[in-house]
Computed example of a mutant assay.
Amino acid sequence: MARKQASQGTPATAALAAAGVPFVVHPYAHDPAVASYGLEAAEMLGIDPARVFKTLMVDVDGRLAVGVVPVSGNLDLKAMAAALGGKKAAMADPAAAQRRTGYVLGGISPLGQRQSSPTVVDDSALALATILVSGGRRGLDIELDPAELIRLTAARTARIGTRDD
């Protein structure tokens, strides 16, 4: 995989470039009328939705955390809480998520966040050679080795996404 420098100019691409991690930038034309950003990315890029992961900010027992799950499923809040040793999880307030990460909704990347948060990546990522995550703005995804994402975010892995299996 060729490494692209931070030519797209987001904190996520800058973090990857600074760490020397190979990645590929996948820009696409975002439609502002679309509400499901991750599924839009998969469709626009022609990539299996099981390889495109969405970044969700969650409140676990009063602490913000990051869940990274395939766009083909949903985040299991109970599993997310358990993965972090918590009792209860709920989706974070959108304004709090944006303040914490420095990104807009639909463009929140697990990489290069203004303030880092405990991160859990769905274990389905481990079976894939590469995954795509938000590059830090709507209409931009980054493809990278999931092991590098886990390393750079100090993430845990757990089954936190729902699946049809």
Rank of each mutant, 00 (worst) to 15 (best):
A95D: 14
A95P: 01
A95C: 06
D93E: 14
A97V: 14
G86T: 07
V69R: 02
V68H: 08
M91Y: 11
V69L: 06
L64P: 00
A90R: 15
G67D: 13
R51Q: 15
A97I: 11
T55I: 10
A92K: 15
P49K: 11
K88S: 01
L84V: 02
N74H: 06
A96K: 14
R63G: 02
A41F: 13
V58E: 10
D48H: 09
A96F: 09
P49G: 05
D59P: 00
Q98C: 13
I47R: 15
A81M: 02
F53P: 08
V60R: 02
A96W: 10
S72C: 06
G73Q: 11
M91D: 05
L64K: 00
V71L: 10
D93V: 07
A79T: 05
G85A: 03
V52E: 12
A89V: 08
K78S: 10
R51W: 13
P70W: 02
S72K: 05
M80A: 09
G86E: 13
A90P: 04
M91S: 03
R63P: 00
L84T: 04
A89C: 00
L84A: 10
G86N: 12
L75M: 11
M44G: 00
P70N: 08
A90G: 14
N74E: 09
A81C: 03
G85R: 01
K54V: 06
V71Q: 10
L77S: 08
D93M: 05
T101Q: 09
A42W: 07
P49W: 13
A50I: 08
V66A: 10
M44I: 02
T101K: 10
A90Y: 08
A92W: 05
V52G: 02
A96P: 11
T101A: 04
